[in-house]
Amino acid sequence: MKLYIKYMVSIRCKMVVKEELDKLDLRYVILDLGTVELIDDLTPGQRSILKIGLLKSGLELMDDKKAVLIEKIKNIIIEMVHYTDELPKVNYSDYISEKLGLDYTHISKLFSEIKGITIEQFIIAHKIERVKELLLYGELNLSQISYMLNYSSVSHLSHQFKKVTGLTPSFFKQLKGKKRITLENI
């Protein structure tokens, strides 16, 4: 049985879900961002307890098919931008479409209707948060970050960063991260 969990966007979220599953002695095959594949079906009582336990941690068990698809799209983007060392060299639309096995036009239209922004805007917002994170770590320079996140140039990255944040990357770095946004709120 497959479950879909909203706002499950980090390793910490996975730990919370694992803890809730363990409390109910629920065995799983896969525990990934946004999804859990259980070995056995849930009873209505277990589902209710799990739902309440997840809500206490800010997570939601989802039933609506559109909401599930939106969460899958979001999780693919979050994983792609935040949890890989280098972004794929293909078009993001092709990457997302291939991962979901669905037509990108359909995915894009649905995402825009539900979220009120385009997938491209969502990706840009996450890329900028990733840039902020990497700038604060101080291990990479702007040129390396630009390459890592598939920007065509440092200038392009800097322009997009300023457009989204209102700050230059160098000025942001001087602020020491006071303007970071949690992944759940992007």
Rank of each mutant, 00 (worst) to 15 (best):
M1L: 09
K2Y: 13
K6A: 03
K6G: 00
Y7C: 10
C13L: 06
C13R: 01
K14H: 04
E19M: 11
E20I: 07
K23Q: 07
K23N: 09
L24W: 04
L26S: 01
R27W: 06
I30N: 13
L31K: 12
G34K: 01
E37R: 07
L38K: 02
I39A: 09
I39T: 12
I39C: 03
D41L: 04
T43C: 01
Q46V: 07
S48D: 09
S48C: 05
I52Q: 11
I52Y: 09
K56I: 07
S57K: 11
G58H: 12
L59K: 05
M62I: 15
E71I: 03
K72H: 11
K72S: 11
K72L: 14
I73G: 00
I77N: 01
E79R: 09
E79C: 05
H82W: 09
T84H: 11
T84K: 12
E86W: 08
E86H: 14
L87A: 05
N91A: 11
S93Y: 08
Y95I: 08
S97Y: 13
K99L: 06
Y104A: 04
H106G: 02
H106S: 15
S108E: 14
K109D: 14
K109C: 09
F111H: 01
S112H: 10
I117Q: 14
I117M: 15
T118P: 03
I119T: 10
E120L: 06
I123C: 04
I124M: 13
I124N: 06
A125N: 13
K127D: 02
I128A: 06
I128F: 05
R130W: 07
K132A: 04
L136C: 06
G138K: 08
G138D: 08
E139H: 10
L140Q: 02
L142W: 00
I145G: 00
I145P: 00
Y147D: 13
Y147L: 08
N150E: 13
N150P: 00
S152Q: 10
V154D: 02
H159N: 11
P169K: 04
P169F: 02
F171N: 05
F171Q: 07
Q174D: 09
Q174N: 11
K178T: 10
T182I: 10
